[in-house]
Design a protein around this nucleic acid. Sequence first.
DNA 1: TCTATGATCGTA
DNA 2: ACGATCATAGAG
Length: 208
Amino acid sequence: MDHYHSDVLGIDFYSRNPLIVARNLIGKQLFRRSKGKLLSGIIVETEAYGESSDPASHAFRGRTSRNEVMFGEPGLAYIYFTYGNHHCLNFVTGRFRNEKAGAVLIRALEPTLGIEVMKQNRKLDNLQNLTSGPGKLCRALDIDRNLNGVEVASEKSPIFVKKTNTHIGKPQSSTRIGITLARDKEWRFFLNGNAHVSRKLIYPKIQR
DNA sequence: TCTATGATCGTA
DNA sequence: ACGATCATAGAG
């Protein structure tokens, strides 16, 4: 129908420089359809990753079976397993400069919908701790490698983000967390004062 | 094959 | 500050 347009972020949103996408995802509402329920939270922390100019990026050394989704179309979910325990959720973006790959890591959410299910998934009752980290939010939202490569630019997707911006105030930026290379790039974005950002922001003095 | 490492987390 | 835990990548 002519007048219909979705309130879900589409391909155009993701088809930009990962720095722009990372900044613009802050304050947006992320949704996950799992086992017939809709789970959701507001994105409060992200990081941008590039390719050949970004030694911290999985895509830095070129395409492998693990990172190939990162070299695919903007608007795909790149989900990987790490540290023997944890999954991390990224959205594939457009290019950083002339590079071939880019992605945005979702690092923290403020839970809004399906909180009881998230608590069960995490086997934990504390809201502050529920989705305040990239591995935690994947566990809470029942996200694993089975979803690697899924399209997120539609309301029918198992994961999608709405256009409405819920945040008041401007995102802060800083260096990225947990990396050993490219420590100087300030490619992390977050809402300060939010309880659900990852641990290293809640205790900024620990931050490297 | 073999080994080192990691876009983390919970506990101490 | 540290150990758990295992898939992945790079080396041999």
